[in-house]
Design a protein around this nucleic acid. Structure first.
Lengths: 205, 205
DNA sequence: CCTTATGGTTAACAGTGTTAACCTAATGTA
DNA sequence: TACATTAGGTTAACACTGTTAACCATAAGG
């Protein structure tokens, strides 16, 4: 009972923070806003979290779990290696588009946050890339993909997907471009680029 | 003489802001910091700029000009269509890596900024994509690339390059991945994906 | 019964963008 | 010359931000 109460407020803070994040966005996620919503003073949050960074890191952790679950789920639905990869790429983008607030704190927030990110959680976040890498590895093993370094390829996929998500959610892409077509094409282009032999360096002069 | 003085301070503010941006980064770019550096009060900036947004928008404009110049320059050096495109892709990433502060205010800063971005400057920013699109169009015309929509392809290139820049500069990419290899591979993969027929949709079950 | 720790509070600091009110010096005009 | 106006700049203040220090009541332990 005591233990419930002890961690009760911490849980309450975290829940309120998540709710505030998803409804009003990160810009409105302040210590005082959180505290006001639950009838506590802002400084009481510091009894359970070292700093705002600390609090956000726990939210990031939730987002990582969410994305990881969605990727593995998508991974299991498709069967063919390229189908698996394509499904995962689409799922990654879907997550970014559907949960922009989570995506923002996970992958967009300023580098300062990342530098202070605890090592153990950093390892957990890397599992996401490993899911993609294993799908690529699978494609290599079955001869569908021609690629030497699956981890490198996974990172290329990541940068492509990350670019799609961030430019779309920040509404920097021209309105005349259909978002769904852009997403589909970007995913297809990448998967295609793995299918045949790459690195045909063109002439420079 | 009067006109020089009239716009003299505005120019001084802008120069100081740019310097502050490149040396200390966007986080330290505050009205008071700018004012202190030139011996004026913070509120005097509002005599020449409507808001901080307004000021930043002018800095963004400078960044857009810079990037545009570098892309067209890179465009002119190479001759073959795929070489042109590859050179431009590399140049885009180089700009992002060498001027991260400019890149941040141009493409990373929160959507709120973009919504308030004046339409005329928005059009100017779009020229950057058009440079890429024209290179792709050139490749299509000469039969090197197989692609129907050059503007769509340019946007795919953009998302890929943007992803590379942001994930690298924010130090979210694993240390074991060589940045240069990632950059080169990402650029090559994209250009390659244009070379042959795309959109070979894989089986999903 | 006294001490100590738990769980919270308020006040305050240094910083942010921005607005309102003011003040001074130059200019334009009757 | 005398007065009004305006350009260019200031200070004070508001409503925020994350965070720290000091305080205070209540409960638990020896």
């Amino acid at each position: 009972m005591e233990m419930e109460q002890e961690k009760g407020l911490k849980r309450l803070i975290l829940d309120t923070a998540r709710q505030l994040l998803t409804t009003t966005g990160y810009a409105q996620l302040s210590m005082r806003n959180i505290a006001n919503k639950i009838g506590y003073s802002a400084t009481s949050i510091y009894l359970y979290f070292e700093s705002k960074d600390d609090l956000v890191h726990e939210l990031i952790d939730e987002g990582v779990d969410l994305l990881h679950a969605r990727l593995t789920e998508a991974d299991s639905t498709a069967t063919s290696p390229d189908g698996r990869l394509l499904a995962m790429c689409r799922e990654y983008v879907s997550f970014g588009m559907e949960r922009p607030e989570y995506y923002e704190i996970m992958y967009v927030l300023h580098p300062e946050y990342i530098k202070r990110y605890p090592a153990e959680k950093y390892r957990k976040a890397r599992r996401i890339l490993e899911v993609i890498a294993s799908a690529i590895e699978d494609g290599i093993d079955s001869g569908v993909f021609e690629e030497s370094d699956s981890m490198l390829a996974a990172n290329i996929a990541w940068t492509q997907l990350h670019g799609v998500v961030t430019l779309l959610t920040s509404e920097r892409v021209d309105k005349r471009i259909d978002p769904n077509i852009l997403i589909d094409s970007a995913c297809s282009h990448f998967v295609d680029s793995l299918r045949r032999t790459t690195s045909t360096t063109p002439q420079n002069n």
